[in-house]
């Protein structure tokens, strides 16, 4: 890598820090009022998914440590059988603040997701115990 490229990375990082410090300090109301486009909402959705994925990763590690020889049984995968994209999307859209305030974001973004993302999210929520089976 050239010296110039290394310098570019550092300069971008310094700007990213300055901008991000402002973002983090913004009042929640201002974030929602200011950034009302679907791209911004998708950034929030991405973060939520990273959390759900982390729950799976950490959960998977724990299971592995406790029962290394037990064949894995994935309840979520089993439940996914017979669930159509349409039903999964409806379930996600039906999430509301009464279930969990943080799930509202997913409900709002469900229409922006493609079929694969819908099924992945549905499965992630089931695995995390954040979605009712019924």
């Amino acid at each position: 890598m050239t010296k110039q490229s290394k310098q570019s990375i550092e300069q971008l990082f310094n700007i990213a820090k300055a901008v991000s410090h402002q973002v983090i300090k913004l009042p929640d109301r201002e974030v929602l009022d200011e950034d009302n486009d679907s791209f911004t909402k998708s950034e929030g959705f991405m973060a939520k998914r990273a959390y759900l994925k982390a729950l799976q990763t950490v959960g998977a590690k724990d299971t592995k440590q406790v029962e290394p020889k037990v064949p894995s049984f994935n309840l979520a995968n089993t439940l996914m059988k017979g669930v159509s994209v349409k039903v999964a999307r409806q379930k996600l859209m039906g999430l509301n603040a009464a279930n969990d305030p943080s799930l509202q974001l997913i409900a709002n973004s469900a229409n922006l997701l493609n079929d694969e993302e819908i099924l992945k999210t549905y499965q992630a929520l089931l695995s995390a115990g954040l979605l009712d089976i019924g």
Binding site: V23, D28, M46, S102
Partner: peptide, 19 residues
């Protein structure tokens, strides 16, 4: 994390992308 608001998730997603 479970109690995070939409705005908090947006802040995390946005700053992660920035960095």
């Amino acid at each position: 994390f479970d109690a995070f608001t939409e705005a908090q998730w947006i802040k995390l997603g946005k700053t992660a992308n920035n960095l």
